[in-house]
């Protein structure tokens, strides 16, 4: 692909639409989450962290799934289209940010409601392992080499992570169930939720998902440009060497 084919303006009607939807729904979450929804009977204002915490957790896991699926598509597709690889990479980068936000907002919420920043709950532990695995995945992407090498290595790493995470989750689950009868998080499931709270949470999930889509769309386009630039520079360097050797003759 030639670098000149890229337009300087990277937005398209699709990304603009996604971006606008993200802004509108996030604005709704801010207003609904901070002002309209009632306080929780037990948690008071602390429950408002939920409107950020739950959507970011959802997006983080979604990002991980997108990376895994895009990696599998790259490996299985006959053409090995680099688009799959770039979507996998972009999604992982955004996923790391959202996963860190999930852990941060979760531990602040935990401090207020459980009295502790951290509990060795299977869900928490698995999420933190997912974060570390993702960071490792991004490090593998940064190892250098050809685009093909980067794509192949990182795709395998992403799929190995799919093997790893259920094993980590299951072993932590088994570990905790043997040592600690009731988990701090259990019992949260049957909380009765006010209608406006549920709506705000739902809009939050939609808004953060739109933000994720917007970020990934733009990020993979930037990655495409970086890749194209790398190729152009390589071509230029090759031409230069060729010219040099012509001059010598």
């Amino acid at each position: 692909m030639d670098a000149q084919t890229f337009n300087a303006r990277v937005a398209t009607p699709t990304t603009r639409l996604v971006g606008a939807m993200a802004i509108v729904s996030l604005a709704w979450v801010v207003i609904g989450g901070l002002f309209i929804t009632p306080k929780d009977v037990d948690q008071g204002d602390a429950v408002r962290i939920m409107y950020v915490h739950v959507p970011t957790a959802w997006v983080a896991y979604l990002a991980f799934i997108v990376t895994a699926v895009a990696s599998a598509c790259w490996l299985l597709s006959r053409k090995h289209s680099m688009g799959f690889d770039r979507v996998a990479g972009a999604s992982a980068e955004v996923g790391v940010v959202f996963m860190a936000m999930t852990l941060l907002s979760g531990s602040l919420w935990g401090r207020i409601t459980w009295g502790t920043y951290w509990a060795w709950d299977p869900r928490l532990t698995t999420t933190s392992f997912l974060l570390v695995t993702y960071i490792g995945y991004l490090a593998v992407r940064g190892l250098g080499g050809s685009l093909e090498q980067r794509a192949r290595r990182s795709a395998v790493i992403a799929l190995l992570a799919v093997l790893e995470i259920p094993l980590v989750h299951f072993s932590v689950l088994m570990w905790r169930s043997l040592h600690q009868k009731a988990s701090v998080l259990s019992g949260d499931g049957d909380i009765k939720m006010d209608g406006s709270m549920l709506t705000t949470l739902l809009v939050g999930v939609i808004g953060f998902t739109m933000t994720f889509a917007w970020l990934v769309l733009h990020r993979q386009r930037v990655l495409a440009m970086q890749d194209a630039m790398q190729m152009t520079q390589l071509d230029a360097a090759l031409r230069e060497r060729a010219d040099e050797s012509k001059g010598l003759k």
Binding site: G136, G144, I157, V168
Partner: peptide, 25 residues
Amino acid sequence: LTAGSRGRETLLPLLMLPVVAPVLI
């Protein structure tokens, strides 16, 4: 994966330790 060129040795623990956590437990 991490064998070979420079600077990759430091990556081994970061990649490997989270994966072997179930074995440690």
